[in-house]
Design a protein around this nucleic acid. Sequence first.
DNA 1: ACTTAAGCGAGACGGTACGTCCCGTCTTGCG
DNA 2: CGCAAGACGGGACGTACCGTCTCGCTTAAGT
Lengths: 226, 226, 226, 226
Amino acid sequence: MQSRTPAVRPGRPRSAAADTAILAATRAALVELGWSKLTLGDVAARAGVAKTTLYRRWSGKNELVVDAVAELFDELELPDRGSLTADIEGVILQFAAILARPEAKSGLMAVVAESTRDDALRERIRASIVERQKLLVLEGRARAQQRGELPGESDPEAAARTADLIFDVIAGAVVHRALVSAEPVDTDWARAFTGLLLNGLTASTGHPPPSSHQTSFPRRTGAPRE
Amino acid sequence: MQSRTPAVRPGRPRSAAADTAILAATRAALVELGWSKLTLGDVAARAGVAKTTLYRRWSGKNELVVDAVAELFDELELPDRGSLTADIEGVILQFAAILARPEAKSGLMAVVAESTRDDALRERIRASIVERQKLLVLEGRARAQQRGELPGESDPEAAARTADLIFDVIAGAVVHRALVSAEPVDTDWARAFTGLLLNGLTASTGHPPPSSHQTSFPRRTGAPRE
Amino acid sequence: MQSRTPAVRPGRPRSAAADTAILAATRAALVELGWSKLTLGDVAARAGVAKTTLYRRWSGKNELVVDAVAELFDELELPDRGSLTADIEGVILQFAAILARPEAKSGLMAVVAESTRDDALRERIRASIVERQKLLVLEGRARAQQRGELPGESDPEAAARTADLIFDVIAGAVVHRALVSAEPVDTDWARAFTGLLLNGLTASTGHPPPSSHQTSFPRRTGAPRE
Amino acid sequence: MQSRTPAVRPGRPRSAAADTAILAATRAALVELGWSKLTLGDVAARAGVAKTTLYRRWSGKNELVVDAVAELFDELELPDRGSLTADIEGVILQFAAILARPEAKSGLMAVVAESTRDDALRERIRASIVERQKLLVLEGRARAQQRGELPGESDPEAAARTADLIFDVIAGAVVHRALVSAEPVDTDWARAFTGLLLNGLTASTGHPPPSSHQTSFPRRTGAPRE
DNA sequence: ACTTAAGCGAGACGGTACGTCCCGTCTTGCG
DNA sequence: CGCAAGACGGGACGTACCGTCTCGCTTAAGT
């Protein structure tokens, strides 16, 4: 309908190819140099673009990297694998696969670090990266409810709080495993984590957790101690 | 007999006061300027120290900030609050309190970001920050086992894997809530998260979770749907 | 057709004003601080210019000072004073006047000292300072020959050698008097030196030296001693 | 008689070997690095001496280098070669030989440059280097007067002025030839220069110059032109 | 033999300047 | 008006030396 910024501005229009080239060059530079040694001059050179062109579109390194990294998360989706357990495991592994890429590793954490002092940057991250991940949680829950694996919600507010918690737990645990502990997020770990999560969500109901996997958590097995 | 580093080295000894002043100045600068605008020249000036003195002791910004932030984690401990639930909640809130401080916020994430491309840095972070946190998990489990809240371990290897998982989940979730979602880690959240965690750990055993709190998680209550 | 350096280079052209300001600032700093305490950062600040701008044009302190001092020698010329004697005295006093200026004093000797280990620097000095002085010698001789004060040259090679010698003697004596002996190069001294020089050049001919001045040199006057 | 500084001071006496080692190390460093890249720390290390030891004896680079270079001029002397001409040529070549050594080249000019802004330094140079050279001029004149090659002096003041002039001319010309023009001071040049000098000193007396050499200077030969 | 007092090596210290790198902005001329 | 090119003012970098200051040890002469 109405284009907020007039569809056509006077003068030569901006090159669309430039944006693509710049974002690709940014990711390439992230892989090669990492966040801290990445320079906008270098990105511009790699993209075959003048620095001015780059600054015309992004206000700085942070914003540029957010956009460059955000595109990596486009591939996140939630294919229906038939059960809540499988869906969760799937999304964990997908997320971990993205985090394993060097352009995401240092870039993502660095902009998060910056965002602690820059609200506009945090909002940009939230809008273009975090929100997309959170939708998967909501979508997964809805699908599980349809399947009957989870009950419907009575209190929408509590449901939202719960979704936030689950999201922080999943995203936080995966990121921490991958970046801080620097251990691989492989199928075994994903299965164990999923078990913990689903047990936590469904426990104390006399209802068996929907997972068919066995976790390796300590649990009282044989006879009680006394 | 064995003096690993010779008891006395020739020449003027290094000033112990300088180290203290530098680390304090670093934290002060982190609060005021944040990671990205912190400069070593500024830190040196605040500490009343020459830049050379600073570089004689630390090889760069990353290493300095790790040490400066690590001292914040000295206050982490695990007072016995009587139950596993209370202990976990306590440590979560302690951890969150540290993360809420601006000198920790941007500093910690930034060095983690850098550590994705610098193994020595990651090891330094692990040794001086992460390991200290992980010990709390182990200590908490041992205490719970003494209390009879958790069973003893049969397979030590599986136990270690489990401890790692729990650690990643706790630390990751708290960090993600605090820094990415930028929501407060308050008592309510801690209680909800602790409930999820303990349910996950003890579920499907016929053993009731040790927590006395009520979580707000969706669980099948009352009559099943059919 | 022939454009040695392409008439227009892409990009913003260098500021001509900057060069002027930098050279003037260099001379001012030489006066105030002398060679050894002159810093390029200070020069840049005085010139109202960034250090990078300075380094873009000169490779270091030596080169910069050579250019700054060379401009002082622009004022060297050889006005026709009617006789060889007067011409020589005039050029000696001119040269001495330049050397008396503090910006020339320490700067000139310092770069000469440096040039003993840097051929490129020596060449720069030669081209922009020394050669200009030497031309005066040649010009003076030509003029004297026109006047008939000196004979024409038969052997051009020997003539060149002689000119070199005269040049070293004049320049060397003036510099030594001014900087090493630290005595004033005044009219008296110039007259005495000119006398010595012209006597040396024209002696043993039975031809009176062209000078009309009287030197104070020891010469056998009355009766020989035996 | 009375030793101004008491012959023995309490405490450990200064090592005489250190002075020797330091001056030798200074010359070695001058050869290798030149004046501008010579550092006192490096000199101390070469001499196997602590920096403090060095600073206890010299107040800085300039003073140290003056002393180190001054020792080179110890070898300057005026052997009697039988005639004024030969004596002058000899001392010119000796002087040039010292100037040809790299430790003298850059060192000497550099301290002279510094001395333009430091009177104490200039006095130190004068006392330990220049004065020694000037004595040769006086000694040479006295010897020539004994030989009858030069007349006795009637006016001692004029004689002193003349000696100063001659000294500036000789030293200046040799230095300029060697360091500025960077041409060799060889026998030919010395002979030509000596000829010029002696002609200048003795001309217009009807007395033939004492030199037996022929200079290559333009002089009116044969029949006068008219 | 013991004291006294300076010399001595080593190296840390507060500084200053270095020359480089990158920033984000500004002129250029061309399309 | 977009764009490539590149100069610009500015700021921080990490390094090199400066000249001074602690250290503990050594080396005499005077007791």
